[in-house]
Amino acid sequence: MDLDFEVVELGEANHPEAGDTAPDFTRPLVNDEFWEDVSLSALCAESDGPVVLVFHAMDGAFPATYVWNEIRDRGWHQDATVVGVSISSPYEHKTLLEERDIEGDHQLYSDPANDVAESYGIAMELDGMAGIAEPRPAVFVLDGERTVEYAWVAQQWPDFPDYDTVEAQL
């Protein structure tokens, strides 16, 4: 198959596993109307079901578009609170929510410094972009106390979660 991009092996990641408590953080959480600083612990405590934390490439990159189209089409928001995390700004997140037609169903954390990915052990530097890092693709399903019920972290770029396996966790 002739790809327009190179597949890159990412190596090991030191990320939270099932049974661990996910690191807490507070960042701007963007929805279709506004954004405000919200901690992950507050979001998990207020959720009626599991929280699906989706780390993704910067908005506009094809992996982010593909992941959010798939999540939208599968309707994960019906069984869980689905939130994304990327290095994109709140303004870029609002555009992604509109373009992917996921307004009202999903929210996105803005983490331009990539500190959240660092705390989760999944930060990766971008080839050819000095000083720019973003999270490697990852999905964590969390309960109300931030206990990790399921963890998937990409071993190569690009890579995508097994959506059926995530759905089985929900």
Rank of each mutant, 00 (worst) to 15 (best):
M1P: 06
L3M: 06
D4M: 01
V7L: 05
V7G: 08
E9R: 14
E9V: 04
E9A: 15
L10G: 14
E12I: 01
E12D: 13
A13F: 11
N14A: 13
H15W: 06
E17H: 15
A18I: 08
G19I: 01
D20A: 14
D20Q: 07
T21W: 03
T21C: 04
P23F: 04
D24Y: 00
T26N: 09
R27G: 07
P28I: 04
E33H: 15
F34M: 10
D37T: 09
V38I: 13
S41D: 13
A42N: 12
C44D: 04
E46C: 00
S47V: 15
D48A: 12
D48E: 15
P50L: 07
V52M: 02
L53F: 07
L53H: 12
V54K: 00
A57E: 03
M58R: 06
M58W: 05
D59W: 04
D59K: 01
A61T: 15
F62C: 08
P63N: 01
A64T: 15
Y66Q: 10
I71Q: 08
R72A: 15
D73S: 14
D73L: 02
G75N: 15
W76L: 15
W76A: 14
H77S: 15
H77T: 00
Q78K: 11
A80Q: 09
A80F: 07
T81A: 03
T81F: 02
S86R: 04
S86T: 08
S88D: 07
S89H: 02
P90R: 04
E92A: 08
K94N: 07
K94P: 05
T95I: 10
L97A: 05
D105H: 06
D105I: 00
H106D: 07
Q107Y: 01
A113W: 03
N114Q: 09
D115A: 11
D115S: 14
D115T: 05
V116C: 09
V116D: 01
A117Q: 00
A123E: 15
M124P: 07
E125V: 06
G128D: 11
G128L: 07
A130N: 04
A133Y: 02
E134V: 14
R136V: 05
P137H: 12
A138C: 06
V139K: 06
F140L: 03
F140A: 05
L142P: 11
G144W: 05
E145W: 06
R146N: 03
Y150S: 08
A151M: 06
A154W: 04
A154R: 07
A154Y: 12
W157H: 14
P158E: 01
P158V: 02
F160K: 06
F160T: 02
P161Y: 08
P161H: 11
Y163S: 02
T165H: 06
V166N: 03
A168H: 01
A168R: 10
A168I: 00
L170I: 11
L170S: 13
